[in-house]
Nucleic acid binder design. Structure first.
Lengths: 221, 221
DNA sequence: ACCGATATGTGACCGCTGTCAACATCGACT
DNA sequence: AGTCGATGTTGACAGCGGTCACATATCGGT
């Protein structure tokens, strides 16, 4: 039987599943090998047959978290429909940021784990090899390139733009998730996030005169 | 004798001093009550006469860290001298951000501690009572108000501006200190930070046509 | 059908941590 | 002089990550 075989069968998967669960509702610091083993109903040393150490387990959870974040961002991106290419590209950048923050607020534990495992966080450009455009950093660069292509961003402003965007959105997420800005009401959060995202849009489109974009709202689903 | 009295004399201060030292060169996760006691040459439980628990010690270190950061920001702020009030105000905002990042990169451990103690980080607006303008958040608001006063920032854009600025700069710091952006060279860091700070300036000054600002460089002293 | 190699899980153990309670010491004040 | 409160010590407990020798189950080859 695939369900509950002989020894335990699929301990590894069970552990990962439990780990994701634990991190979700307690953050990275709640993730303990022993607690996991207890949950799965197995000896604490058994986990070491499947993971070299705690870090290895964390890495796997981080992968899942990253995937979840990408999925969430895509959900927003896919909903964008605007009349002209410029507005579409601008809107996509905004929605990208909003999706990032959505995930951070909806999956606090996973988000914190993603950026608190100081030995080599698995995000972004370092890890090469993946499908381009399937990690947040790739999506971001793609969106910015589009904005240059449609003539919204001056080519001279493209350099470093991805860092600016990432920093702003990531900072907002961090401050709201585990920093002094948690405790904001939903309204305040929406307002300040709109202000931030539209500010980025303004900074990039400073060359010409463009119609302003509609505000954003978080989606705590 | 004030130096090495009877029992220990000034254990509390000695512990705090050692704690700052440890965090400086190992980050918050290296801060252990027992290690501290060992360093100071005292029994492992002695610390409990002075601190309710580990958290309390962390809070004190956080205060020191915050003070250090404010000092560093001020050092940059005080060096600003520009011909006209508008440029001065703009420059001050830029230097404020640069000082924040300076501190994050020069005092990695202390910075991380400041924003990783999820139960009530001591930064920013929450803690009231302090001299206004003597914490980073107050300095930031002051700088932004000035920019409105001199006519650089349109009054309609003032709302939420402090969150935008803080998010961007904080995000940059976090990504460079413990995130995927550490590993950047000094040149890349300077370039991207300049791009970020000047982008903020651009976003706020979008109303009129202003001369562009000179780039920034980090100061790893 | 058997038997051995290999994968998987167990229990005891180490050193580390924070925290607490009981005990010792010392200075200050009456 | 003698007591009291603040400070420091000792020893214990539980929980953690990690490692080991050992037990067990499963599978592959004969």
């Amino acid at each position: 039987m695939a369900t509950t075989p002989y020894h335990h069968g699929n301990l590894r998967d069970a552990l990962v599943e439990a780990a994701v669960e634990v991190v979700r509702e307690g953050g990275p610091e709640a993730l303990s090998l022993r607690e996991l083993a207890r949950r799965v109903g197995v000896s604490h040393a058994a986990a070491y047959r499947h993971f070299a150490d705690r870090e290895a387990l964390v890495d796997v959870v981080a992968e899942q978290a990253l995937a979840g974040m990408v999925a969430r961002v895509h959900r927003r991106l896919d909903r964008v429909e605007e009349p002209d290419p410029v507005t579409t590209a601008r809107r996509r950048l905004v929605e990208l940021g909003a999706g990032y923050v959505d995930f951070a607020l909806a999956e606090t534990g996973l988000f914190r784990l993603l950026f608190t495992a100081y030995p080599d966080p698995p995000d972004g450009k370092g890890d090469g090899g993946d499908e381009p455009g399937e990690d947040p950093y790739g999506l971001l660069n793609h969106a910015l390139d589009d904005l240059v292509a449609v003539g919204f961003i001056d080519a001279g402003l493209r350099a470093g733009a991805e860092v600016t965007c990432w920093s702003a959105v990531h900072g907002f997420a961090v401050l709201n998730v585990e920093g002094p800005l948690r405790g904001l009401t939903a309204e305040e959060r929406d307002a300040t996030l709109s202000s931030l995202l539209l500010g980025i849009d303004r900074a990039f489109g400073a060359g010409g005169t463009w119609p302003s974009l509609a505000p954003v709202a978080l989606d705590p689903s």
